[in-house]
Design a protein around this nucleic acid. Structure first.
Lengths: 107, 107
DNA sequence: CTGACATTTTAATAATTGTTTAACAATGGA
DNA sequence: TCCATTGTTAAACAATTATTAAAATGTCAG
């Protein structure tokens, strides 16, 4: 189980419109990811601001960085999001699957 | 599908140690919920600070309020968390279930 | 009605966060 | 090597957030 502090860090990282949009773009882009510039262009955000947000997401381990020539690719790391969801839903139905409120869980 | 602004609001609400602890307590407490004072006592946080956090969670529609005599009960509202997870994982594997990185989804 | 209890509100302060601008690396093609 | 491209870092500022203490609200028992 993830530690509380890491969960808070991940939630904080996603709790901002630009970063949420970045993360969703990367979730939809799979393992290959997208170059920093492509993301900046799609979201219409300045490079410096993007770097700030990439750092926040990286620090929370929600995304991973890969250099390819002059380009820097970012890709979603699903482990932390999965861990976050597990942390939020722990003990969600007292072990009674028939009353479970969380479709994504196999209580 | 939830709107981005509501998702950000929900993530922000959970992205704080005390509120994350409140929410998890309520998730584990089911529909009955817990009285404000019980939660404050368990988490060793002053009533005024608790009220502030309850308001934030309520405003994000992550918890619901119910008055019972002099006590005010709060209970988790699972809809918003489920919506939040759906929003985060939209298009997560390009429709290819066999490569899906998110166990909780039925891609 | 009065007093005690449960919780919220308000106001003030301290800490954190997001954006901008300008300057700084690192890469690779001419 | 030189220069344009790609992206990051640093410093400054504005905006948001969390906590505290004090006062206020609402509810019920006597």
């Amino acid at each position: 189980m993830m530690k509380s502090t890491q969960v808070v860090k991940a939630l904080s990282a996603l709790a901002q419109p630009t970063r949420l949009a970045i993360y969703r773009l990367l979730v939809a882009s799979g393992a290959q990811g997208l170059a920093a510039g492509q993301i900046a262009e799609k979201l219409k955000v300045s490079p410096a601001t993007m770097s700030f947000h990439f750092k926040t997401l990286s620090h929370a381990e929600l995304i991973e960085r890969r250099q390819d020539g002059r380009f820097i690719y970012y890709a979603a790391n699903f482990k932390v999001m999965n861990g976050m969801v597990d942390y939020l839903t722990e003990n969600c139905c007292g072990g009674h699957a028939e009353i479970c409120n969380i479709p994504s869980k196999k209580c």
